[in-house]
């Protein structure tokens, strides 16, 4: 993965270009959120989001280019025409709807709260301890809304930084999306669930620039197509062993 990051950045250096969004549909994803979207050793974007995006493009019969974009800048990038859609496991929230439009949801997300293994914390107790989350995620917003904007919610630029602070013991819990949380538990020892699954009615949609209603409709139609012909289910089963729609 690291090799590709270098390669990708050099490619970015080389192309200070203008972009017109006519024939090739440009789709952004984060590339740092396995198993939904990440970069392989060969520099390729892979993951559930990427496969869904490719399936949708096939259903729309359009040529697509998928680009990686950091999370903090992903909405500003869409608004500024850097690309035409975001397929990056993005939750449909009221605040984001003020900036962009969304398609119909393509899966549902839940939140998990992770702590040290054997921690006797409960959700009720989280307001009194230090908890971590990635900045600009639904997890961080849930924590703020649930425990107040002045609770000790520590915001990190990346999830790994939050996980290492949890391991070190600087924070008592992390709020994050439930499938990546399962991935963290798989790869890190000494951590466990404080709450495995919180339903916050979180729908994941494809972000589209405001006013681009034609594209929104096209994506929605394509989504129905891949639901109906089994493409979606096949992709989901390949990643998660179950249909997460």
């Amino acid at each position: 993965m690291k090799k590709t990051l270098m390669g990708a950045s050099l490619a970015v250096l080389a192309m200070a270009t203008t972009s017109q969004a006519q024939d090739v549909l440009r789709i952004a994803t984060e590339g740092a959120y396995p198993p939904f979207n990440n970069v392989t050793a060969d520099g390729e974007l892979v993951g559930f989001d990427v496969d869904i995006a490719k399936a949708l493009c096939a259903a729309m019969e359009r040529e697509c280019e998928i680009v990686a974009q950091d999370w903090d800048g992903i909405i500003p990038g869409l608004v500024n025409n850097k690309y035409d859609a975001i397929v990056a496991s993005m939750s449909i929230t009221q605040e984001r709807l003020e900036a962009i439009n969304f398609t119909a949801p393509y899966y549902s997300n839940y939140l998990s709260v992770l702590g040290k293994e054997g921690s006797d914390l409960t959700l009720e107790g989280l307001g009194d301890v230090a908890i971590g989350a990635q900045r600009s995620t639904v997890g961080s917003q849930w924590a703020e809304d649930e425990y107040g904007s002045r609770a000790d919610v520590r915001l990190y630029d990346t999830n790994p930084a939050a996980v290492s602070d949890l391991e070190a013991g600087r924070i008592e819990a992390i709020v994050m999306d439930f499938l990546p949380a399962a991935e963290v538990l798989n790869t890190t020892s000494g951590l466990g669930y404080i709450e495995a699954k919180i339903d916050i009615n979180d729908q994941i949609g494809i972000g589209i620039r405001k006013g681009d209603d034609e594209l929104t409709d096209a994506f929605n139609a394509a989504l129905e197509t891949i639901r109906a012909d089994g493409t979606y289910e096949a992709i989901s089963v390949a990643y998660f062993g179950t249909d997460i729609y």
């Binding site: 970015v12 200070a16 270009t17 972009s19 500003p76 025409n81 850097k82």
Partner: peptide, 28 residues
């Protein structure tokens, strides 16, 4: 500069009636 440069440039391009959209790479 990072978050504002695209917005500023594209707004001024639109003001001159241009359809072109510029993206400013992080390096720049």
């Amino acid at each position: 500069v990072f978050f504002g440069s695209d917005q500023l440039i594209n707004a001024s391009l639109s003001a001159f009636g241009s359809e072109a959209r510029v993206e400013v790479p992080k390096f720049v």
